[in-house]
Nucleic acid binder design. Structure first.
Lengths: 210, 210
DNA sequence: TCATATTATGAATAATAATTCACTAAAAGT
DNA sequence: ACTTTTAGTGAATTATTATTCATAATATGA
């Protein structure tokens, strides 16, 4: 079922659906799930409330779809990097840069994901696609760091803590910086995060400049 | 107006008020603001809904009071440490330990604060007491790190990033660990965070063991 | 052009949850 | 004992917002 097999009408339908998703994403990322009404989304997308319900079963299902799209995009970007055969430090460097790019291109997605993250994890602990993907990535990163330690590339740090530290720092930084949507600032910051974490992980003999 | 100048009745009133706050805190910290109804709080606290409204103007005001109490407690614990005349590395070490203690004694407060942090900061950017206190502490920590660098105790790191990294790691760790309310785990983890951050901040000559 | 199918509409409805208030119960004062 | 004051109650009211659905607009194809 690719784009060319669809009629003009069908393509239009898809586009309308996307418009609604886009409007919803904008609002949710600005105000969070509970502070956006279906009315608000209707106004923003310039469709009637009823139309939204032709496309989505409920407000919640619409939100879930967004969140899963978001998780999907994050997954598709990060997983190949994590699976690649590069040296461990290079994987982590690439990862941080990929995050910067991801944040640049999908800043609303990232905001949505991070802003709801706290309460989300209280309410839908393990059901969502998004949560599963997060766990998948977290686990993989831990493995990479472990492997880096085994291969004497990294210093023998505490894997749990450095993983939480790296990920929470990236997330928190992107979230704070995305408040004023300054993409330059995000890129600069993530470059510094890369330096801070990966250089301090490296064994002395592997470090470039102090 | 201290405790001894109150009549028994007045003391009881205060106690009832506290009971309601406590019940609300429990529920909010488990499910977040929007997923707890005033009914729920009434049931949990074993008062009628109307009684809650004798004590608090609205659900929101009740929540604000909790959040401010929380911020207040954090402030009272951390500020004296940040203002103390210890050497900079010692301040940070003490800070992390204080966080552990804070988390141990007020795990629900901390959960409330962190879980709502994302959406809160979208909605009430700078109004709340809690937000002001957060900024105050963040700023102070940055100053301490700067001062540590000037005094050649710390390596010349990027102050912004290390501050975000330190704080977000603490918060994220406490939040995740508080999910299963294992106080021991939190203490262990924070000790490792202390090592990770402060040791990697120190100039080589100041470090104890590699 | 007209019948049919599809898509869009938004006022009406339903569901949920905050808030009020007339009332009861308990305590304090006389 | 009785009056007054204070505290507590929860069904009823109100507000908000998600959802439905009868209707209108538009497109399709005979």
């Amino acid at each position: 079922m690719d784009d060319m097999t669809l009629t003009r009408k069908e393509r239009e339908k898809v586009r309308h659906r996307d418009d609604i998703l886009k409007a919803a994403l904008k609002l949710f990322s600005e105000k969070g799930f509970h502070n956006v009404s279906v009315q608000d989304i209707a106004v923003e997308s310039e469709f009637a409330v009823g139309t939204l319900y032709n496309f989505f079963q409920s407000k919640e299902q619409l939100f879930d779809e967004l969140l899963n799209n978001c998780a999907q995009k994050i997954y598709q970007t990060l997983w190949p990097i994590l699976e690649s055969k590069m040296q461990e430090d290079e994987i982590l460097r690439t990862l941080v840069r990929a995050y910067a790019k991801l944040a640049e291109e999908n800043i609303e997605f990232i905001r949505l994901y991070i802003s709801e993250y706290g309460t989300l994890s209280l309410i839908l602990p393990h059901k969502s696609q998004a949560e599963k993907i997060k766990v998948l990535i977290d686990t993989k990163i831990r493995e990479i760091i472990k492997s880096g330690i085994r291969n004497k590339i990294f210093r023998p740090v505490d894997v749990e803590i450095i993983t939480i530290a790296l990920l929470s720092t990236i997330r928190s930084f992107v979230f704070e910086a995305s408040g004023d949507f300054d993409k330059n600032k995000i890129e600069q910051g993530l470059k510094k995060i890369e330096q801070l974490f990966i250089d301090s992980l490296l064994m002395a003999e592997n470090r470039g400049n102090g």
